[in-house]
């Protein structure tokens, strides 16, 4: 190999490596700049977004939304749970493939042993708990393992403590699904916009919320867009005045949810894992 060719190859190689690395380095730099500038003009900084980081202790400032689910009320009102699920799944264009393998669900019901595995001492205590169904959904953890696992920040915690999904960034690696201890996440194994035997998987498309494409993960959003507009989540709305579900700011001591949590004994799903779920259950 003569020296000029070698020199050329060396330069070409270095350029190629730099070319691959540069966009990400640039990206990181730019992001820092944006953060710095928004902190500078005084209104862009979001202390709440980082309040819970480090993993221990609830977000001390800003809002942190949570939910209390009264399983007894659901037990006493048969059909209410189904109404909640329908309200959620129809609004968010959650497809129904008619089989368990491809299943997508944001909100659903399971018996006590499935909702609270490891707490089986309750199992033998009373028939009522045993017979009850429990609404399960994304816990919007304060210390979410899915956010930690995601390699692209496609799932992230917003300033209000809600765990969000960016359907357009998700690469479909399903690391978050392995990481979630609650089975809250679903994957689009096939095209949800399709149909089988003339029956579309999404019965009636709601134009207010985008349908997903195949190959991305989805889950309960805590109705973040509704909450931003001052509304309550659809499932909570569907429970009417029953108070079977209470939604609100856990950081506000005067909120209804804080009052309920102060007055009633509640449990959480797998609190020992340190994920600090935002969903509480009255049993």
């Amino acid at each position: 190999m003569d020296s000029s060719r070698r020199k050329f190859l060396k330069i070409a190689g270095i350029t190629a490596v730099a070319g691959i690395g540069a966009p990400s380095a640039l990206n990181m730099l730019m992001k820092q700049e944006v953060q710095a500038s928004s902190a500078g003009d005084g209104h862009g900084a979001q202390p709440a977004a980082h309040g819970g980081e480090g993993g221990h202790g609830a977000a001390p400032v800003g809002k942190r939304y949570g939910m209390v689910i009264d399983a007894v009320k659901f037990h006493e009102n048969p059909g209410m749970a189904e109404k909640c699920i329908e309200a959620c799944h129809s609004y968010y264009n959650v497809p129904d493939f008619g089989n368990k393998k491809d299943e997508i669900k944001w909100l659903w019901q399971v018996p006590f042993t499935n909702a609270f595995p490891g707490d089986e001492s309750h199992y033998k205590k009373d028939d009522r708990t045993h017979a009850m169904q429990f609404m399960v959904l994304c816990n919007h953890c304060d210390n979410p393992p899915c956010v930690r696992a995601c390699p692209t920040k496609a799932t992230f915690k917003n300033a209000d403590g809600m765990v969000m999904m960016d359907f357009h960034r998700c690469i479909g690696c399903r690391f978050c699904m392995a990481a979630c201890p609650y089975g809250a996440r679903s994957f689009n194994w096939r095209d949800p916009r399709g149909s089988k035997d003339g029956v579309p998987f999404i019965k009636k498309v709601n134009p207010e919320f985008p349908t997903r494409m195949r190959g991305v993960v989805e889950k309960c959003s805590f109705c973040d867009l509704r909450v931003k507009r001052g509304l309550i989540p659809l499932c909570v709305e569907a429970t009417g005045d029953s108070k079977a579900m209470v939604f609100g700011d856990l950081n506000d001591p005067n909120s209804e949810i804080s009052q309920v949590l102060k007055a009633r004994f509640t449990i959480q799903r797998k609190p020992s894992l340190g994920t600090m779920p935002s969903v509480f259950y009255i049993i």
Binding site: I20, P23, S24, N27, P151, T152, K153, A154, R169, C170, I171, G172, C173, R174, F187, N188, M213, R214, G215, V216, V217
Partner: peptide, 13 residues
């Protein structure tokens, strides 16, 4: 990967 065309997101983000 569910979305192989987005694999570079791991580098971009």
């Amino acid at each position: 990967l569910g979305q192989p065309m987005r694999a570079l997101n791991v580098v971009l983000h």
